[in-house]
Amino acid sequence: MTRIAVLTPDPADPSYSGQWPGVLERLTRALTQADVQAEPTPWTQHVEDASGLEAYPLILPVLVWGYHRAHPLWLRACETWRAADLPLANPASVLGWNSDKRYLARLAERGVPLPATRWVERATPEVVADAFARTGAEQLVVKPTVSGGAWKTLRLSPGQAMTDPPTGAAMIQPYLPSIQTEGETSLLFFGGRFSHAVNKRPVGGDFRIQVQFGGQYAPVQPDADALALADRVLAAIDEPLLYARVDMARDGDAWKLMEAELIEPDFYLGHDPAAGAGFARAVRERLDA
């Protein structure tokens, strides 16, 4: 059995301690189908020195949840891994740029449709008021460009005070009503091949679709337009990706990209009809290449 490394959260960060072990178990179970043994190790133990990872033929950073709260450390780790030429999948360079949502602006420049987005160095009340005036939106979503799991993400109405707002660079978008009615859809790709899709809906008037906020998930068959958008996103990224999760939502009649998750996305293997077989095959192919 081939031993590979799976990078996991900082042991000092308890935020996801109730969630990531279950995700690791699903990943491990899937990988055994490809004769692969996943060995977990915290990413924070390899920031300055990559030697503890050099023996592995493949390193998956798929459980580094919480890195956004230590972003400078994360970028330093990515540079250490890149300089050491570690067999990371996805590549260390991707792990760096994908950690800041300003990559979405670059994808938009390459023709990928996004919700109308304003990028600001700080989301002050004045900046938010101006965004309301310019867009005419009934509600806005404000979130840090470095974030995860809806961390410091706000949904605001005109004149509403911001509680615990982002303190640095932020993005501002009109809130898409379809999030409430249709939810967000995630398309999973392994080795460049479409695997499965999951629809995620908020509950109880919330706007956050994450499971920790009560989000409800269900497998779904994406339509041709959703698949076409995902293909367009991956073509615009044009990197050697082992895995990708493309999150999208409807803006009127058109699908718009919300995020391209290339670092530590939950693959929702519990909703995958093949139980992760596509992921395991992509890992095996990478190892055998």
Rank of each mutant, 00 (worst) to 15 (best):
G111N: 14
Y67H: 11
L86A: 01
A133C: 03
W97C: 08
A260S: 09
D35N: 13
Y56I: 10
N90K: 14
D206I: 02
L241D: 10
I237P: 07
T41V: 14
D206Y: 06
T153E: 03
L114G: 01
E184H: 09
L176C: 05
Y217D: 13
L269Q: 06
G168V: 04
A230N: 10
Q216F: 04
P72R: 08
L7Y: 05
P21W: 03
G52H: 05
R281A: 15
E121I: 01
W255K: 04
P166K: 02
W151S: 13
F207P: 04
E182T: 12
R201C: 13
V246R: 10
P57G: 04
L75G: 11
E54C: 14
R82E: 15
N98P: 07
L154N: 00
E48H: 15
Q37L: 09
R134C: 02
L95W: 11
E48L: 13
T135W: 07
E259I: 04
A228Y: 03
D85W: 04
Q221T: 15
K101Y: 07
L156H: 02
A129L: 04
Y175W: 13
P115D: 03
A5S: 10
G270T: 08
P125D: 05
T163S: 13
W97T: 08
G159M: 08
K101S: 06
V146A: 02
V211E: 14
V141T: 01
Q216L: 11
N90H: 13
N90S: 10
G22S: 13
L86R: 04
Y175L: 14
T41R: 11
E261N: 00
R76V: 03
S99I: 05
Y175S: 14
Y268H: 06
G159V: 07
Q212T: 14
L176R: 03
L229H: 05
L114D: 03
S15L: 15
P265L: 10
A108K: 05
G52K: 09
Y243D: 06
A12C: 12
V62T: 14
L73D: 13
A230P: 06
Q33T: 15
E264W: 01
V128R: 00
G192L: 12
V127W: 01
P240D: 06
V36I: 15
R232K: 14
I209M: 00
I263M: 06
E264R: 00
G148I: 00
Q173W: 08
R106A: 15
